[in-house]
């Protein structure tokens, strides 16, 4: 399951949905808005999402992770809209029988999401015009 959200991510609710009595491991990743980037003081972030394609691509990534790693269930949410420092921008949760595959699948999910989903980020600064930023490993270029 993967969703795009206009509102704050409820991590407690998401965690409660990842229940399976065979699971011995739960691993999650929270991406938070930090107050600096590339030497600049960041005040907030705007996320813009091409939602239809982002959801399709995210579901492909979920299926890939299920094929590559021995996991029981995966879930993820990415925010869109204007976020402030400390807000959760992205959340990934994985349950598996053992911790190794849960860590590996979680890492795979967040890495692929960052590089493949049509999501854009505009940084706002204290004394500078806002700027669209890009993932440094975008498109393998």
């Amino acid at each position: 399951m993967f969703t795009i959200s206009d509102v704050s991510i409820d991590t407690d609710l998401l965690t409660k949905e990842l229940i399976n009595s065979r699971a011995g491991a739960f691993v999650c990743f929270e991406g938070r808005v930090r107050n600096h980037n590339d030497g600049e003081e960041v005040t907030s972030l705007e996320y813009e999402v091409y939602e239809e394609l982002a959801l399709k691509e995210a579901l492909r990534i979920v299926e890939e992770a299920k094929e590559k790693f021995s996991v029981l269930e995966l879930a993820g949410v990415h925010r869109q809209g204007h976020l402030v420092i400390g807000d959760i921008a992205v959340w990934i949760g994985v349950i598996a029988e053992h911790r190794g595959s849960a860590f590996d699948a979680c890492r795979y999910m967040i890495d692929e999401i960052k590089h493949r989903l049509p999501i854009w980020k505009k940084e706002h600064y204290i004394n500078k015009e806002p700027k669209w930023v890009q993932c440094s490993e975008h498109h393998g270029t």
């Binding site: 394609l53 990415h78 960052k114 999501i119 669209w132 975008h138």
Partner: peptide, 23 residues
């Protein structure tokens, strides 16, 4: 997602995707 060399057809919905920055 398609290649930039794909043949366009009338009625297509086209969206160009500049460098992404999710997460």
């Amino acid at each position: 997602f398609q290649s930039m060399d794909t043949a366009l057809c009338s009625g297509d919905c086209v969206i160009f995707i500049p460098p992404v920055a999710g997460g």
